[in-house]
């Protein structure tokens, strides 16, 4: 009996201590981690999409609720007018989720640029999607309202050689971004007005 009590007490105390320590540390580092993510992953991607903006898209960001999910949007101003938004969506790649940042011009629904953020694709094959902007640049100028497919599947995006799964995943991420965009378009239009005032 005594042994049983000791076991329960030791495990409970240890777990409680561990939980307390970790939640404290999590709170302490949360703000820093978000800054780091924006700086190293999203920042460079957003900057490459929104070349020549007059504002700081990372500072001009907002969050919208899509059902239970909170989605971040970044605003780009061209010639003093906020007309471009950037959002991130995900596709299932060969080594897990691939994030794709995509910039959309709100006036004509055309894609102004796209860039891969987080991925765990094979170096030299799928990872080329991030290292070499050639593949994602195909999205540029297309309308966000279409469904993207690689040429093998009857679409118009040329797949990367040796990385069909990655190419399909990025097409799916692009189409996913379109779905989010169409769903939230009225709210996005409202929000973007605030940035023009």
């Amino acid at each position: 009996m005594r042994e049983l009590v000791t076991m329960v007490v030791v495990l409970t105390v240890l777990s409680a201590f561990s939980g307390g320590l970790l939640s404290g540390l999590r709170d302490a580092t949360a703000a820093r981690i978000e800054v780091q993510q924006l700086k190293f992953v999203k920042g460079p991607a957003i900057k490459s999409i929104l070349k020549g903006v007059s504002n700081d898209p990372i500072a001009d960001r907002f969050v919208l609720k899509d059902g239970d999910i909170e989605r971040k949007f970044f605003v780009g101003k061209f010639d003093g007018k906020a007309n471009t938004i950037v959002l991130e969506s995900f596709g299932k790649g060969y080594g897990g989720d691939i994030g794709l940042m995509i910039g959309i011009n709100m006036e004509d629904d055309k894609i102004v640029g796209a860039s891969v953020t987080t991925h765990s694709e094979t170096p030299g094959l799928g990872a080329t999607a991030k290292d070499d902007p050639g593949f994602v640049s195909q999205f540029k100028g297309l309308s966000i309202n279409e469904t993207f497919k690689v040429t093998n599947d009857g679409g118009k995006v040329n797949a990367m050689s040796g990385a069909t799964i990655t190419s399909r995943a990025l097409c799916a991420a692009g189409s996913g971004a379109g779905t989010i965009y169409q769903k939230l378009k009225p709210q996005l239009a409202e929000k973007i007005k605030e940035f023009n005032e």
């Binding site: 320590l21 970790l22 540390l25 580092t29 981690i33 780091q36 190293f40 992953v41």
Partner: peptide, 16 residues
């Protein structure tokens, strides 16, 4: 596990 999560959080905060 506690120290692994500590490492993970610290690495995210300081060596992203």
């Amino acid at each position: 596990a506690t120290f692994v999560v500590v490492t993970e959080l610290l690495m995210q905060a300081f060596a992203y």
